[in-house]
Design a protein around this nucleic acid. Structure first.
Lengths: 246, 246
DNA sequence: TAGTGGTCTAGACCACCGC
DNA sequence: CGGTGGTCTAGACCACTAG
């Protein structure tokens, strides 16, 4: 192994992954690992801290470190840009702006987002097409208090999601996934039968507590999957939570 | 701020999040930050390394660090144990094993999982109930080559997912989410109308390259959401939210 | 109270890679 | 070649907490 801390980490991870160290098992103290590997405390501390942030062990002062109970599993879904996804699939991407208005937020949206009544919002409805076939129907609200420059944007070149992603950084996001039956309007837009199952992804994003945008993206259930791969020890962005059942 | 590295990190993160440092902007060199904050190089190195692993900046030797381009968004869904979720929601959880057989893997599953034909699999179908109401229908395959002790397990106390999670560590997982219309059998099991939209979560898990289990969990689309919160740079738990049905 | 982890220092050597 | 980040050391003090 190239680096010492990698070797130590791999040793401990493999003991945990193999079941040799089951949940609740005591991880050696830092000073023990120092002696075992003949290295300084900083090195083993970095390893154990990384393992702790990755959820493989839990650490407490005075009590030491133990292998964590695997209580929840994480599904990490990569939500790709439509144009990127299409390019990767070798299809031609195109989009249509079906609707664009600026108006005060309605009551239901105000409750969902926590914004005060009367907040001016840009409402945009977009149809995303792959090789001419509707692939997603997007209803989006953009907070003009947070993104005032959106008021004059008409999304001639980029769809709203891409435009926003390149312009406005975000600090928090909330995702809701559910399945619905297509109503007549949706079925017509997505060229499917009324009542067909659709996958709905709602995403709300904030920037330092200020609401930025809400997107409701509806995919035809028979044409779209969301796929995610995840390794518990891989280093990904931390943070987040949710609740569902396996 | 309590810790120095937290203060440095918050400073840099806020500059990035606010747009003051747009993507491509140069982050100060480590020695500059040392001087600015009057600390050692290890401290600023830890901060910048963390930001790099969290995807906020990219670092290259000689070239220095720059603010990263936001590319794809991630939805992180934490998939909780049924019993835990029920306890949190204050409902009574119960499950029924509808079906349990041991047989060679079928052709379709062999292709999905990459297992050789003839591999012996434990097939279990489970109905999960919350307060007596069907909440999920689970079809699971368990590889008996990897989990031989499952051959004699009849899941009297714990449902298969909970039993497995406590027994078999996993190193890789793949998730697929889609929406389907309920067929007659599914509609009967979940007490919903035929054709109603369902959310289907498929999860396949491996342990060091060896296939462990595949679960296809079907939720009533009108009774269940998957909810996830996500902060790109958050360090600790970002405040759990109980997901429930409307 | 003693032992543990959390943080930080002031150095060091090395690998890499743009100039 | 030189400057950058990657890694590591051998200490140190402090905060927390189990016993």
């Amino acid at each position: 192994m190239k680096h010492l801390h990698q070797r130590i980490r791999d040793d401990i991870e493999s003991r945990i992954m193999s079941g040799q160290w089951p949940p609740g098992h005591r991880v050696p103290f830092e000073h023990q690992l120092m002696a075992e590997y003949g290295c300084s405390r900083m090195t083993v501390n970095k390893v154990l801290s990384t393992l702790a942030t990755n959820g493989l062990i839990t650490r407490r002062r005075r009590a030491g470190s133990v292998v964590a109970e695997p209580s929840t599993q994480r599904a990490v879904l990569e939500i790709q840009d439509f144009a990127l996804e299409a390019a990767r699939a070798g299809t031609v991407y195109r989009f249509q702006i079906l609707h664009r208005t600026i108006e005060p937020i309605d009551a239901a949206a105000a409750q969902r987002t926590g914004l005060p009544a009367g907040t001016r919002m840009l409402s945009v409805t977009t149809l995303h097409l792959m090789d001419g076939v509707p692939g997603a129907y997007e209803q989006r609200l953009i907070n003009l208090d947070t993104v005032p420059e959106a008021a004059t944007e008409h999304f001639a070149n980029d769809p709203p999601g891409t435009w926003l992603l390149r312009r406005v950084p975000w600090t928090d996001a909330e995702h809701v996934l559910r399945a619905v039956n297509a109503d007549a309007e949706l079925a017509r837009r997505l060229q499917m039968k009324t009542g067909a199952a659709c996958l709905v992804l709602e995403r709300r994003t904030w920037q330092a507590g200020a609401f930025v945008t809400e997107a409701r993206i509806t995919y035809p259930g028979d044409r779209h999957h969301l796929i995610g791969r995840f390794s518990p020890a891989a280093q990904g962005p931390a943070g987040g939570s949710a609740a569902v059942s396996p």
